[in-house]
Design a protein around this nucleic acid. Sequence first.
DNA 1: CGCCGTTTTGAAGACAGTCAAGATGCGTGG
DNA 2: CCACGCATCTTGACTGTCTTCAAAACGGCG
Lengths: 237, 237
Amino acid sequence: MKTNSCDCGTCRHKLCAQRVPIFFGLNEEELSHVADLIQRRQYLKGEIIQLEGSDADCLTIINQGKVKAFRYTQEGKEQILYLFSEGDFFGESNLFGGRKAAYHAEALERTHICMIARNDFQELVRRYPEISVKIIGALCTRLERLETTVQNMGTRSVEARISSVLLEFVEKYGVKNSKGILIALPFSREGMASYIGIARETISRKLTLLQDAGIIEMIGNKKILLLNEEALRRELD
Amino acid sequence: MKTNSCDCGTCRHKLCAQRVPIFFGLNEEELSHVADLIQRRQYLKGEIIQLEGSDADCLTIINQGKVKAFRYTQEGKEQILYLFSEGDFFGESNLFGGRKAAYHAEALERTHICMIARNDFQELVRRYPEISVKIIGALCTRLERLETTVQNMGTRSVEARISSVLLEFVEKYGVKNSKGILIALPFSREGMASYIGIARETISRKLTLLQDAGIIEMIGNKKILLLNEEALRRELD
DNA sequence: CGCCGTTTTGAAGACAGTCAAGATGCGTGG
DNA sequence: CCACGCATCTTGACTGTCTTCAAAACGGCG
């Protein structure tokens, strides 16, 4: 992954633009044009990239790293809405709906982002209409994920939701080894709990049960080894 | 509302196209072009418009009526994802993501829809790029609603969720009268429950409590009179 | 190696879900 | 227009499970 990143400072971020799905399909020259408009920035773990309610008028694309998008309720509880990784973007509602940011965005690790200002981006869309088709596709994907989340929260048991999030992490961050699939967790227990809308103590208990059942093995607090994927999938229903 | 609808069969559905937000901004001639591509259809209450998993390759726009979008879980429980009304559309993920329909769609009352075939629509988007910008805007709105739903389900009390859905109905279907705001409910208790992910008995109990508190008055099973909007808003936190 | 923050575990309580029975409302047909 | 019957809604009692509060264990970082 990291071999693709561009730190040379001279390629005008062409690679950066190349790696972002919404610019797939553009040719060399067009990418150059896009790259000219990109501003890069870096955030450390824990730093806030976007504040809920702000109207940062640019599209933010994640080039490297992980970002959590979340809101606070009145009681101060945090609800995580998205976990963004390489190639994901946010800020689109500012650009297209003219609305304020709908959530806070915080870097979960050292994160590189690309920003494109509203005017520049609108110009881009006008010039390369395929970009909007790509964006619509990406938004549809996000909608589907959120629809599934709503369904999970509304109708599924706590066990099913935990299995679901573990399987999501397997897909995104899982690495096969001889014993099973090793997952480097992007969240603490607290984060996982807020991601699926339950208390952190509950997730502790349920993970212990999964471990007792021989389905997973917890390695410290930041890794989980999935021993029996089949069994985990059976928990989903 | 109904005065705007077109039953003449000769205007080539221009009015129909005019009423749909995603075609706002097109001129007379362009609307004519759009209207040429539109197929109309009518559904009665309870009829299925779209099946989950199907790949109906057209964009469906609601011209008149109400539609619920929902999924079933393995256990047969229903989770309502959206309540679509005049001007809303669905089927976009088929067109842009090349995916199967993510949910069933069922008419809640007599409903008129407009359909545009995939090829025709792609041609339209190519010809009038503003349409895609409008679509992106609409998708952003839908995302925001869903994000709020996720937050509600994840962190809010049952009372807050009920207040939230009542206020949504007030906004969409509320009519002021001398005593308060009259809401014609689009759903049965069962539907409301599935919309916010709780059991139907629970919603009965909570509505009774709200009535005892003098905040609402239930009129039969299909109407609710909101007596104290302020108090209902206070329930939100 | 030691401390601090996170996680786990325990026990108690609250609250929504379920099952079941009774009441109400709605649409039908007479 | 009224009356009937079915479907939906309400109410009650109980169960199960998640949350909360508190304390102990653990892990990770300096």
